[in-house]
Design a protein around this nucleic acid. Sequence first.
DNA 1: CAGCTATTTAGATTTTTTTCTAAATAGCTG
DNA 2: CAGCTATTTAGAAAAAAATCTAAATAGCTG
Lengths: 89, 89
Amino acid sequence: MSFADTFKALSDPARREILQLLKDGKMSAGEIGSHFDMTGATISYHLKILKNADLVWETKVKNYIYYELNTSVVEEILLWLTELTGEKK
Amino acid sequence: MSFADTFKALSDPARREILQLLKDGKMSAGEIGSHFDMTGATISYHLKILKNADLVWETKVKNYIYYELNTSVVEEILLWLTELTGEKK
DNA sequence: CAGCTATTTAGATTTTTTTCTAAATAGCTG
DNA sequence: CAGCTATTTAGAAAAAAATCTAAATAGCTG
């Protein structure tokens, strides 16, 4: 969705952990959930936020939904932060 | 304070805007506040969060408190994000 | 030192976020 | 197709965050 949504999405520790898990490749919602002490519904909520922020992709295979990291949007955040650190007057 | 606090601090648009303002040099709490449609108390609250996250420094001069950007902690976030984008298996 | 000016703190309220349980959907598989 | 398995959606409750007003602090300045 937007830049602000990306920052919001990154602000939760569980969501950041999900992204780290996905670094190693795609994973189903269930597999992701098994790494956390949360209900599937809660994991689904977090995945939705990551998806809305374009931080992840989903692909459906059989009755599984696989999630995959989308790094392109991370670049925007990197840029913002880099500009913050650089060019000081 | 911690890594998580830094991400939380960055998740609010007003706080990000404050950091952008401080890119151009230090600024008093009042000056910062004048850029926003919020009470001084609210600005003070946001400044406290930024300070706790080590994203800003404060220095007292007369009865003013000046805030200044501290970029060193931003580097950690940059690193985390960079590692997320790089080294995909 | 009396009154300003700048800023923060306290406390309350509102808004947003996170989480859960229960139910719904959807697509296998025997 | 009947029953599983995987996942999401809805709705409610709990927890956290943002905001305000009013009061407190603190340090000038005349």
